[in-house]
């Protein structure tokens, strides 16, 4: 492909990047208006690293930490929710604003609609209870198990937290071990520590 004529025809043209960005944004708008998109997503910089925010038409379906590997998370959304996935649109702007406020200590809860389709059965029951743990306080895995109606399912509570599709928004970081140790966290322990410190300080 060293032929200059061939190169001229096949090379990108100046301004293509801006043109493509415009075309892409218009595509997301049209696809959303015609309901032929399964998931839209955006990234958000935060004190606990870059977050992936993903939503369906019904609500926020996934929040993911960088250490979960955003590409893998998107691949898995392709299989579990649908592969008509596009980046952009304004569906996630309200959540992004609420998260910014949360990290600034100005907001203690989230008002955006959630799509909990990625959690089922006992895990879903656990997630519903987690949303009731007040900002700034914690519960032990055992307490959550009890509140979820299965006092002996302590380990199942652990795995419900570890597979929480909506971390931060559904506050699994407020679940710690009964001896006061942090336990685990899907976003990494430093992130859990940071969120708990943020809530203690506010």
């Amino acid at each position: 492909m060293s032929d200059p004529t061939i190169q001229l025809v096949s090379d990108p043209v100046t301004g293509d990047a801006e043109r493509l960005a415009r075309l892409h944004a218009a595509l997301v708008d049209r696809a959303s208006a015609e309901s032929c998109v399964d998931v839209t997503y955006r990234l958000l910089d935060s004190p606990v690293g870059q977050l992936l925010l993903a939503a369906t038409e019904s609500g926020v379906v996934r929040v993911a930490f960088e250490i979960e590997d955003h590409d893998r998370v998107l691949d898995s959304l392709g299989s579990s929710v649908g592969s008509r996935i596009l980046r952009g649109g304004d569906r996630l702007d309200p959540l992004a604003r609420e998260l910014d406020d949360y990290f600034a200590g100005r907001r203690h809860g989230f008002d955006v609609p959630l799509d909990l389709r990625l959690a089922r059965g006992f895990r879903l029951t656990v997630l519903r209870h987690l949303s009731e743990i007040p900002y700034g306080s914690t519960e032990s895995y055992g307490e959550v198990a009890l509140a979820s109606g299965s006092p002996r399912a302590v380990r199942a509570v652990g795995s419900a937290c570890a597979t929480n599709p909506l971390p931060i928004v559904v506050p699994c970081h407020r679940v710690v071990r009964s001896d006061g140790a942090l336990g685990g966290y899907l976003g990494g322990l430093p992130a859990k520590e940071r969120l708990l410190a943020l809530e203690r300080a506010a």
Binding site: L20, H24, L74, D75, G78, S83, R84, I85, L86
Partner: peptide, 13 residues
């Protein structure tokens, strides 16, 4: 099954 966004990024230009 792959996210459509990959096809746009890879082949859009």
């Amino acid at each position: 099954k792959r996210p459509f966004e990959q096809a746009v990024t890879e082949h859009g230009p």
